[in-house]
Amino acid sequence: MTVIMEWIAKLSDEIFFNLIREDRYLYFVKGLGISLQLTFYAALIGGCIGLMLALARLTNNRLLNFIATKYIDIIRGTPVVVQLLIIYFAIFATTSLPKVTVASIAFGINSGAYVAELIRAGIQAVDKGQMEAARSLGLSYAQAMFYIVIPQAIKNILPGMGNEVISLWKETAIAGFIGLEDLMRGADIVRARTFSNYTPYLVIALIYYYITISMTALLGKLERRMRKSD
């Protein structure tokens, strides 16, 4: 009995010190906001870059093809932390852009390489006859892509894209490297104040986890809706 009482007392202490005292929960709330923002903008930027790279890889233009292939090689061949630091300290060193923007760009550039391969594979999986039928009607390559091929490719791409956003969400935990107070950094700050070894991390682990499963559920819903038109 006393063991349980002690345990409850300890737990409430932990919660009090790590979340309530000095409004420390705000570190988590604000951190969550930053992390979500990063994920959202990075996914958007990554999606645009990915689409352009995928189209570049699908054309017969050798130069575009080469550039896209090299981009993808380099980004996939180096750690994202290193990319983030290079982009922040080297490329954007002299600008006064907010850190969130720079980090979004960095994560977007990284994600774009992975998205490009997803989109390329998704487009290539659409039957060649679709493009031919569209072109035979007189549609231009761009029109055929836009009206016929890409809408069908989306169904192929969507599951992979969801996974990409989910890993992006977790990858943003390194944003603290450039001093952004994201969820992860929030936990660090709280731990530095309270000296609790694990409570802040448990809190953010729970947050990361629940956001991830919400995204998964949302994605599942979206996929089911898309499948309806099959």
């Binding site: 039957d127 072109r135 009607l137 809408p151 038109s229």
Partner: peptide, 16 residues
């Protein structure tokens, strides 16, 4: 190409 219409063996209707 608008002057010629084409019908394919595999139909190639747009499924979406």
């Amino acid at each position: 190409r608008q002057k010629t219409g084409m019908v394919f063996q595999q139909f190639n209707l747009f499924p979406h």
